[in-house]
Design a protein around this nucleic acid. Structure first.
Length: 298
DNA sequence: TTCCAGGGGTAGA
DNA sequence: TCTACCCATGGA
């Protein structure tokens, strides 16, 4: 018999303007397990396994000028765990990111038809950089349906269940993925040739050989971060640009089949553009290239 | 059956 | 630096 969860209510102030539904639906991440989005209630829900090992089901929705959160857990959370939840919430919704320069730049340009609603522009992230990077690895050379399938299986096979609702599982921590081994990831999760990449990454993080907090630290040159990302097996130019975007650095374009198709149709009369032609389209946006492309392609 | 997807690693030139 | 080839998987 599952125990009754203990709810903890909290609020996180958000910048203004802030568009909660637009942020949640800014890209496909919300469709990946274990995210769940209730459009009618404008509520984002997901289980999270905190670094302390505590399982929490977190629900977020907008309320007045803040994000209202409910965290349900089997036992009362410590002050440190409440701090971890606050950090995860702010990370997911990018509540501390300053997009003022981008929105001013977008407002001043008439040559791009941007679909940027007021308060939009923040692209949803996972609670941790580890989960973000694993999901990016699951987007390479595969259709979106395949990405969804692989991430769902990762959660089903390796995620820790919520004590009060065992049907729901958190995204696995690095140690769980590392201990599963590449063959398990290949056979049971269906990661295919990506299994070695995902396992190798998780193993390094679990062993402490790769410190994600260092990657996430502000103030480091983007070129340096990009070089470190490209040194991880399985991460090439597309994945590095996507991860840099998830780190709040928008100066690199993730050139993939979708971008080639969109840019070709919109700017090159349906012809497939070269990488250089794609770069030329968004070069005027400088450090905001990624966001310019993203909200150009809608 | 064949192609290819929100690519990337490796070998060889 | 560039190109060719290979890598699993499952929709279309």
């Amino acid at each position: 018999m599952a125990s009754q969860p203990i709810p903890l209510r909290f609020a996180e102030p958000h910048p203004r303007p802030f568009n909660f539904p637009a942020t949640v639906n800014s890209h496909g991440w919300v469709e990946l397990a274990p995210f769940s989005w209730d459009q009618d209630r404008a509520t984002l829900t997901r289980p999270i396994e905190l670094d302390t090992g505590t399982l929490v089901e977190l629900s977020l929705r907008p309320w007045r000028n803040s994000i209202s959160g409910v965290a349900s857990s089997a036992r009362p959370l410590t002050a440190a765990e409440r701090s971890l939840l606050s950090r995860a919430t702010r990370r997911m919704l990018r509540l501390d990111e300053d997009l003022g320069a981008f929105t001013r730049l977008a407002a001043g340009r008439s040559d791009h038809t941007m679909r940027l609603a007021p308060g939009a522009g923040r692209i949803l992230r996972c609670p941790s950089l580890f989960e973000d990077i694993v999901c990016v690895l699951c987007t390479t050379n595969i259709a979106w349906s395949g990405t969804r399938r692989m991430v769902s299986r990762l959660v089903e096979q390796l995620g820790t269940p919520l004590p009060h609702d065992p049907e729901k599982r958190a995204f696995p921590l690095p140690r769980a993925v590392a201990e599963a081994g590449p063959e398990f990831l290949r056979q049971q999760v269906g990661l295919g040739y990506r299994s070695e990449y995902v396992w190798g990454f998780a193993h390094k993080v679990a062993q402490g050989a790769l410190d994600l907090a260092v990657l996430e630290a502000s103030g480091r040159p983007t070129a340096e971060l990009r070089a470190e990302l490209l040194a991880i097996k399985g991460i090439g130019p597309y994945a590095a640009a996507t991860i840099l975007m998830l780190l709040g650095r928008y100066g690199h374009l993730p050139i993939d089949s979708a971008m080639r198709s969109f840019v070709g149709n919109k700017y090159y009369q349906g012809q497939t553009p070269s990488d250089e032609q794609i770069q030329a389209i968004y070069a005027p946006w400088g450090d905001w290239r990624y966001l310019a492309y993203w909200f150009d392609s809608g």
